[in-house]
Amino acid sequence: MSAPSPFMQEAIRLAASVRGRTSPNPWVGAVLVRDGQVISRGATAPYGGPHAEAAALAGVDARGATLYCTLEPCVPFEGKRTPPCSDAIIQAGVARVVVALLDPHVGGTGVQRLRDAGIEVAVGDGAEAVTDLLRPYLKWRQLGLPYVIAKFAVSLDGAVGAPSAGVTWLTGQAAVERAHRDRDWVDAILVGSGTVIADDPALTARPGGQPADRQPVRVVLDARGRTSPDSRVFAPGAPVIVATAHGSPPEWREAIVRTGATLLELDRSSGRLELRQLLRALGQRNIQSLVVEGGPTVHASFFEADLVDEVHAYVTPRLLGSAGIPLVPQGASLPVIHIDPVEIAPLPPDVLIRGYTGSWQPPLPILAPER
Rank of each mutant, 00 (worst) to 15 (best):
R115S: 03
I90S: 12
V111W: 02
I89D: 08
R113P: 05
H105Y: 04
A88V: 11
I89N: 11
R115T: 06
G93C: 14
R115P: 09
G108K: 00
V98K: 15
Q112C: 04
D103G: 01
D87C: 11
D87N: 09
D87V: 04
D103C: 09
G93S: 10
V97Y: 03
I90N: 09
R96G: 01
R115C: 01
I89S: 10
D103M: 06
S86F: 05
Q91E: 12
V98R: 10
D103L: 05
R113W: 08
D116M: 13
A88I: 15
R113M: 05
D116A: 14
V99T: 03
L102D: 06
V111H: 04
A88E: 09
G93V: 13
D116C: 10
L114G: 02
V98W: 13
L101C: 02
A92I: 05
V94M: 05
A88L: 15
G108A: 01
I89F: 12
A92N: 11
I90Q: 05
I90V: 15
T109A: 15
A95N: 05
A100S: 04
V99F: 02
R113H: 14
R115Y: 07
D116T: 11
A88Y: 13
G108C: 01
I90G: 12
G110N: 10
Q112I: 03
G110D: 04
V99C: 06
A92S: 14
H105A: 13
A95G: 14
V94E: 01
V98S: 01
V94I: 08
Q112Y: 06
S86Q: 10
G93M: 11
A95V: 13
V106K: 10
H105R: 13
R113G: 00
R115I: 00
I90K: 12
A95C: 08
G108M: 04
S86V: 15
A92G: 07
A88K: 10
R96Q: 01
Q91F: 07
P104N: 09
G93N: 09
L102Q: 06
G108F: 02
V99H: 09
G108W: 03
V111S: 08
P104W: 00
